[in-house]
Design a protein around this nucleic acid. Sequence first.
DNA 1: TATAGTTGTCTAGATCAATAGACATTTTGG
DNA 2: CCAAAATGTCTATTGATCTAGACAACTATA
Lengths: 245, 245
Amino acid sequence: MALKKIVERQTGVALWRQIADRIRLSISNGDYDATGMVPPETALAQEFGVNRHTVRSALAALAEEGLVRAVQGRGTMIERKDRVSYPISRRTRFSQGLGRQVKDIATRLLSHAEVPASGEVASALAVSPGSLLIELRTVSSGDGRPLSTSVSYYPADCFPRMAEEYSRLGSVTKAFAAHGLDDYVRVSTELVARHADADELSLLRLSPGAIVMEAQSVNADLDGRPVEFSRTRFAADRMKLRIET
Amino acid sequence: MALKKIVERQTGVALWRQIADRIRLSISNGDYDATGMVPPETALAQEFGVNRHTVRSALAALAEEGLVRAVQGRGTMIERKDRVSYPISRRTRFSQGLGRQVKDIATRLLSHAEVPASGEVASALAVSPGSLLIELRTVSSGDGRPLSTSVSYYPADCFPRMAEEYSRLGSVTKAFAAHGLDDYVRVSTELVARHADADELSLLRLSPGAIVMEAQSVNADLDGRPVEFSRTRFAADRMKLRIET
DNA sequence: TATAGTTGTCTAGATCAATAGACATTTTGG
DNA sequence: CCAAAATGTCTATTGATCTAGACAACTATA
């Protein structure tokens, strides 16, 4: 007899959403790999101790995400189960890290601006508050699925053409090189997980209640002078982070 | 005029819970540090575009968590705003990492057992599948608040008294030392964020919909031989991870 | 070609979430 | 002491969520 998986009521999270989250997790854990299908609705309803209609709402949400596809008479098939692994190391480079896991990596520049350094960013970059920074906002996708969105800051005096070079070359590493900086290393990373806000939901095409992992990181040149501060938010159910110490 | 912060309806996540999550985030971001109080209920209701009763439900949930305390006539005071920072490096040691951030660190041993190595754990520890491992389950708290729960595996032939030594000494590092292993280093860490399951909700005293960060890590002795595989789940809204590369 | 097993659709009722308004109670400050 | 501002409590109503049951439509297979 299968353990009845408890879902909790009256918690502000609808049962169908709790169940959708659990099924999504089971899929990415490979629990259903033997058949490539989600168990029948009646079985899931019994397993979670809810009505079949409630399970159907959960599956409808997962179908909306493109994670499963229901076929009348046959069952509900799993369409996708991958979680892209992203390495964080002293030499973190976005595109290289994803490498062979996704065929098509696309990064879109959402906006760029010159802004004065606020307290937190200024201290991270070791510049005086108020000094000018280039701000870049981007979204990166793998095979058409948004994976992360990022806000990055660069000292405007050292890297005046950052926005232009980035949009021309499509890579931070190359844009740095165009300014004469050939190498840089990660000096700090702080990681937090939280619910996505409205902005992130739309940029990453997530459904409400979804989770983002937010990494605040500082990169520096080989003399230890900070050259980039960035805040990257990863769609948590599409990525895992591999930390290389 | 303050931007109206959008909360989304009919998404399976109750408005009061979305609002509670947003307020919790604002608290830990320090948005209310000037007063040490949450804005008045009527102001929040307007800000989020909902009824005051809905905001009250959100604040009641936060009060239940012990994060705020409402006082009639005065307002709703912030009781706690910390997010403990936990370092992940080549030499990660649990208690040392938390250091001065929490006065009282307590780790409780939930269970211990001898189990055969399953596929994933066996390959991480480089032992043959089915060989015996010591399994320890623990919960760690800081100042009475659960911060993380962990399942760890140790090769039984190398560390036969792991459970006894751990419960006697209260530290993995010391239990290793009692077996003659003086030093060890982190060789890999994989990080994922997801919704907490029923077990984690109760162990970490979280409310449903809460987030855990799960770190799967392997530690090895100085010859590179794996000595520990562990799966630690952190309460995401109480911790941030600082990655030292 | 039946039949069992599955998803799709509909109706009706019960429970939870959110709105709306009114007023009580407590604290703070003029 | 009074008024303003804040939280606490109550009632009523509406819409979303969940349950229950029945049956249709489709697929695979014996």
